[in-house]
Simulated assay, not measured.
Amino acid sequence: MTSARPVDQFAAPAGLDDVPDSVGGVLSDFFDRVIPHAAAIDPVVGEAATMLREFTMNGGKRIRPTLLYAGWRCGVSEVGRSPAPGDGDNPAEALRAGAAIELIQACALIHDDIIDRSDTRRGRPTIHRAVETAHTDAAWSGDPSAFGMAGAILIGDLALSWADDLFHGVGVAEELPAGALRRGAARRAGAVWAAMRTEVLGGQILDIVNESRGNESVSAAYRVMEFKTAAYTVARPLELGATLAGGSPALINALRSVGHDLGIAFQLCDDLLGVFGDPEQTGKPSGDDLVAGKRTALIAVGLNRAGAATGGELRGLIGRELSTDELVRARSILVDVGAVADMEQRIDRLDERAQATIAALNVDGSVRSELSALGHRLGHRQR
């Protein structure tokens, strides 16, 4: 493995806005270490690992590691905190855990793009399309499309495997403080980590089953959101950071509540972006959720509010390629039946409840203020 900076030499971010760059540095260091090992197996394995690196390092807002670091800062600054010996006062541990979540996210996105048959991600070809193109360019035998999907599945699996390695310190353990991986806070954080992995995969299973069943209920859409997004994107990262810092059960419970509300608001906003989003901002085609046939809360509310004729028309505009006129019509139905207004009202209520919980947190005022601002941004992204 190549030499790189010890994990504890990554400077603590000055504020939450600096976390994405700091996590990017941890990821870059990790890839420097593990890609040569992959390439030693065979150059094509190294090329696949490099493709994963480029995908992971290309854009992304690093929301999950930022929330994890916010949770860690809450834990460290908790009023009356009495940390056990070795509890997580080292910001490098929080940055490393945040970088590991980014690898889980890479896996989830790569596999999601296969499931959704997406061609682009963040303005570039999705991994399965890029692997398909490499097959075609090399004039290899077999079906390029099948090869692309198989290669992308394996690259996603590699990301998930490396996420565990990074979280548990494999490949960096020689540079961690003695006993860091055995202390109580790390063991408790490991349990949160394991639960988070199961929840995000469980949410993905629910998602594809709901689509295949054609389940149009709002409750089914919320069940997917609870596990695929709310827990994984917001609640578990906040909990994980606070747990690493040795935060109290009361603080962890409050952050879990904040995370649930903000996570649902985040997904409702994402549902709006999936239908009304600007491709220049989202990096995905306009109306992508409609084409993919996703049974989001927005679609479920729209179908439940529409009458028989309009509901049937909207149903006919879900799960297939749409012309510009058809996309405009689908959007107008969702607006006219009040589904969009319903989503926006729900987002506002969830944000207000989360903000009230944040205001009551028994932590440093500056930390509370940063978390409040970050939380508000999660549910109010521009369409």
Rank of each mutant, 00 (worst) to 15 (best):
D8A: 11
A40W: 04
R122N: 07
P85Q: 07
R53T: 01
L303F: 00
D112Q: 02
K61H: 12
E211I: 14
A12I: 01
Q204N: 04
S28I: 05
W140T: 13
G86K: 01
G241P: 03
R377C: 08
H380T: 15
A235C: 11
K61G: 12
F266W: 02
A189I: 05
A306K: 00
F30P: 00
T357R: 15
R5A: 11
I347A: 12
M196F: 03
A138F: 07
S22V: 06
A330H: 05
A99D: 03
F227Q: 11
R62P: 00
E102R: 02
W193Y: 08
S141Q: 10
A354D: 05
L268V: 03
P36K: 06
D342A: 14
D116C: 03
K284E: 05
N210W: 05
A354W: 08
T310I: 08
P285D: 07
A94Y: 01
V79M: 07
G86Q: 03
P177Q: 07
T66I: 14
S145A: 15
R197C: 12
M225D: 15
R315M: 14
R320Y: 12
A48L: 09
I104V: 11
R81D: 05
S161F: 11
A186Y: 07
V340F: 14
A134D: 13
L334D: 06
D137I: 14
L374S: 04
R121G: 00
P85Y: 07
V76D: 01
D207P: 01
A254L: 02
F147P: 07
A360I: 02
A356D: 14
A130Y: 03
R64M: 10
A94R: 01
E132M: 14
A194S: 12
A308G: 10
L314R: 02
W72Q: 12
Q281C: 05
D8T: 13
S212D: 07
L322D: 00
T282A: 04
R64C: 03
G60M: 02
M343I: 15
T50C: 08
V337N: 03
G259S: 08
A339Q: 03
M196N: 13
G59P: 13
Q267L: 04
R33A: 01
I299D: 04
I127S: 09
G241H: 02
A231G: 11
L52N: 09
A297R: 10
Q382P: 08
V275T: 01
T120W: 06
A354S: 15
S82A: 10
E226G: 15
T120L: 11
V172R: 05
N362Q: 12
V172T: 13
G307H: 02
D112S: 01
S3E: 15
R62E: 06
A292L: 05
N304C: 03
A99M: 07
L361S: 02
G190V: 06
G302W: 08
M51K: 09
R129D: 02
D32K: 10
P125A: 06
Y232A: 00
G319S: 13
A339C: 06
N253F: 05
G184M: 08
A359W: 07
V26Q: 01
G25I: 05
G202C: 09
E93T: 13
A48H: 06
A292Y: 00
N253E: 14
C107E: 13
